[in-house]
Design a protein around this nucleic acid. Structure first.
Lengths: 157, 157
DNA sequence: TATTGTTATACTCTATAACTATA
DNA sequence: TATAGTTATAGAGTATAACAATA
């Protein structure tokens, strides 16, 4: 009924809609965490540290699909906030292992709440069944197309 | 079984997954149309012209949620490619109406094929039922949260 | 010589602001 | 004076490349 843009037209494709909706979602999440002095990529780095402890900056760069110098600036910021610690590897003093601090874990929890709230407003109009289907499909796409765990792209503005 | 990142952890939220998958989708689509000398935002503008003919650049800027000067550069590029025409409004000579040319419509069709191919690889592992559920949910989110028709955000690289 | 982290630099994208022409 | 389009400029974000310390 309302499908001016259904069918094969560009705005009706999954790729296009994922692109647009992904921007919206990232935008709202970015706005929600802005008061915490965090960008989505900072949260992505913290989430990676939470899931997999004791990684070097190089490891993180390749796993997150970004360049090592970006990890440096993200880690610098998180370190200033007291969310992570840099620890020199004793056996190889070139390596620095990043670890979440208690404060960092706390911050991550706050970000989780923010993301959950964004989810709520974003999916408010879906039926429970539709929401479950969406989550299921997104989970498959996520685990399927993401052997690496790329960081979310923050909105350009 | 495979859900290291399920539950309420950040990577498991809809917002986060839409953000990451949206980046992937936009990235692949951008790669697919790169040989055509187009970026996602060019395609977004062409799609808007295809859906709603005879709009001025200001109209388009507000409808697409970008600044007028960005419409200028996008239109400049599309005009150089012969995909659109600029036509001065006879009654108000300040206004310029953008219109897709036949060549532009052709180009848009090629982009549609590219998007459809990206869709195919992106959703290859979904069952037909899951695919349908995903499309349904995305359609609802799209029509629900997008009173305006924002342009897709191209990947930063 | 190769690798880790860092710094310096450049590039892309987009917004803001100043400007021209029409109204 | 206000509006449509354009141009010039600036800012955010990220990559590339050069560098220092360690292996």
């Amino acid at each position: 009924m309302n499908d001016v843009n259904a069918g094969n037209s560009i705005p009706g494709t999954v790729a296009y809609r994922l692109g647009v909706l992904g921007t919206i979602a990232a935008d709202r999440f970015a706005a929600a965490i802005d008061p915490l002095d965090l960008k989505p990529k900072h949260v992505g780095l913290m989430a990676a540290l939470d899931a997999n402890t004791g990684a070097s900056q190089q490891d993180l760069a390749t796993r997150l699909g970004v360049v090592p110098s970006l990890i440096v600036s993200l880690a610098d910021h998180l370190e200033r906030l007291g969310a992570i610690r840099r620890e020199r590897d004793a056996t190889d003093r070139r390596r620095q292992t990043l670890a979440l601090t208690d404060q960092g874990r706390q911050l991550l929890t706050t970000c989780e709440q923010a993301a959950t709230e964004v989810d709520a407003t974003l999916t408010a109009r879906l039926t429970p069944h539709q929401l479950q289907s969406l989550q299921e499909a997104l989970a498959i796409l996520a685990t399927d197309t993401l052997p690496k765990n790329p960081l979310p792209t923050p909105p350009n503005p």
